[in-house]
């Protein structure tokens, strides 16, 4: 018995020859906000779909509250609220009418739950406006209302801030925080926007090309944001060879022809500069720097794509 609300074991999804998610092992603790961060197409949505049973995994298993999802859907799904991809509703109905249908299917009693959910996302309950006439932001708000309407213990939200204006984003962020801190809800939220996850999540998983690169608490990650020594030299290829040969160092990254980062700040800068000089290398700059969270994510995912 552990304290994980969601646990996956070697979760894999392949489509034809392509692998969308590969051997994913994530662990989401009770009462925490867990941010799934990755570039577009990293496998975040596929992962969430597998967690909800919307897509069958090719291999591996999903455990929710220590129970395998397979064979327990009817007991587990009522405890989850979800928002996956673009909001899907009936365009000829109003927000309240749409929610009424899903409330009836879910067996949510009374109209109060619908009113509360709409009130929370600041959509008027008695509005005559049809879903087809909604802006993207309003559609997203309605999708969030649907996810929270039945007061679930676990929320799985796929890019929930999409289309919301800055005020709306701040409101939703505050509400999700309140749900987590005040009511002990567990929230899994995906995003490709680092700042969004950094402001909201307690734990972060970084996923790229379907592979989990890192799973850590945000606090630990921030603390671990690596310091490095930045060198501006005449030839980074030669510098790299010297670092390997003279210092047995492999923890470095060549940025371009002139710039190199050494992720071992404990080494003596003076000594390295001296050895570079002895090997005929010109050193223009050498100083210790801290790596921002964003730089860290870019580095481990191998490039751009996370704002």
């Amino acid at each position: 018995m552990n304290n994980y609300v969601i646990e996956t074991k070697n979760l894999t999804k392949t489509y034809g020859v392509g692998t969308s998610v590969a051997d994913l092992n994530i662990h989401i603790r009770r009462g925490r906000i867990y941010g799934l961060l990755g570039r577009n197409g990293a496998g975040k949505t596929t992962t969430m779909k597998m967690l909800l049973g919307l897509t069958r995994p090719t291999a591996g298993e999903v455990f929710l509250w220590d129970k395998p999802l397979r064979g327990n859907k009817r007991n587990l799904l009522p405890r989850i609220g979800s928002l996956i991809e673009a909001p899907g509703f009936y365009p000829n109905l109003t927000a309240a009418e749409n929610l009424r249908i899903f409330a009836a299917l879910r067996g949510v009693p009374g109209p109060r739950a619908i009113e509360n959910a709409l009130e929370f996302v600041r959509l008027p309950c008695r509005d005559k406006k049809l879903f087809s006439q909604y802006s993207l932001g309003m559609k997203q708000r309605l999708a969030i209302a649907l996810a929270i309407m039945h007061d679930p213990e676990l929320l799985i939200l796929d890019e929930p801030m999409n289309g919301l204006d800055p005020v709306g984003i701040a409101e939703i962020r505050l509400f999700l925080r309140q749900l987590c801190d005040g009511k002990g809800k567990t929230i899994l939220i995906s995003s490709h926007i680092l700042s969004e996850i950094a402001l909201l999540a307690d734990d972060v998983a970084i996923i790229d090309k379907g592979v989990l690169l890192e799973e850590e608490s945000l606090a630990a990650l921030e603390q671990r944001s690596r310091k490095y020594i930045h060198f501006a030299v005449s030839d980074t290829a030669q510098a790299a060879r010297i670092l390997e040969r003279e210092f047995g160092e492999t923890q470095f990254a060549v940025e371009d022809d002139c710039n190199l980062r050494l992720y071992h700040p404990e080494l003596s800068v003076t000594k390295i500069v001296r050895v570079f000089g002895e090997n005929g290398l010109e050193v223009f700059e050498a100083h210790t720097c801290g790596e921002s969270l964003e730089d860290h994510f870019k580095r481990i995912t191998g490039g751009e794509g996370i704002a």
């Binding site: 799904l77 899907g88 009936y90």
Partner: peptide, 11 residues
């Protein structure tokens, strides 16, 4: 209309 993803998560 993309409503199946809302229906399939309903028990």
């Amino acid at each position: 209309d993309g409503t199946l993803k809302n229906i399939f998560v309903i028990p």
